[in-house]
Nucleic acid binder design. Sequence first.
DNA 1: TGCCAGGCCCTCTTTAGGGCCTT
Length: 209
Amino acid sequence: MPSPIAVIDFETTGMTPAQGARATEVAIVLIEGERVVDRFQSLMQTGVWIPPFITELTGITNAMVAAAPPAVEVMRAAARFVGDTPMVAHNAAFDSKFWQSELRQAGLDAPQPFACTVLLSRRVFPDAPSHKLGNLTAHLGLPHTGRAHRALADAEMAAALLARMQRELCQRFDLPWPDHALLMQLQRCARQSMGKLLDRLALNASGAL
DNA sequence: TGCCAGGCCCTCTTTAGGGCCTT
């Protein structure tokens, strides 16, 4: 049984917590292999104003978050949901910063390691015309999961993309189902060294080494 | 009501610049 991975997506008021941006919605999809085994989703109230262009992008309004539970409450529930499960996000540099920032403001640590589906997809599908989440999932023919730029739909898309890449790695290199540690290793490789790493793993898997 | 980051990767590179990706 493949070990679980938590795929997360935040909607926010801006690009970075360093400039005062806060989360407006979080969704987490727990997957084991290719199977979604659990989901967590909630809007959250931080008191930070949502600019109109963000509302246009996400559909999330100031009225919606005003009626949502406080961010501290939501993040504590999210942390309980994730536990120590390793995490994945599409452009993890973005979501991991909000994960750390929102948990810190809720008085919690964020010890979970993050792997990134953007970095991985650039390795696994280097010839894809675009590595934006929506474009890439459409290019690969993955199922439509709902309104783009809502947290749960995007987390489900990223989870489907991750599973597709893991299956691709299994088939292409005759590997066992790649775990989070291997995904972390792959995302850090330059394209050539990724090939060498996978060749070595494939030889290992075949018993040749 | 609105400002606009940062890490990664590629290449016409490495004493750098520009594009991609996330909201």
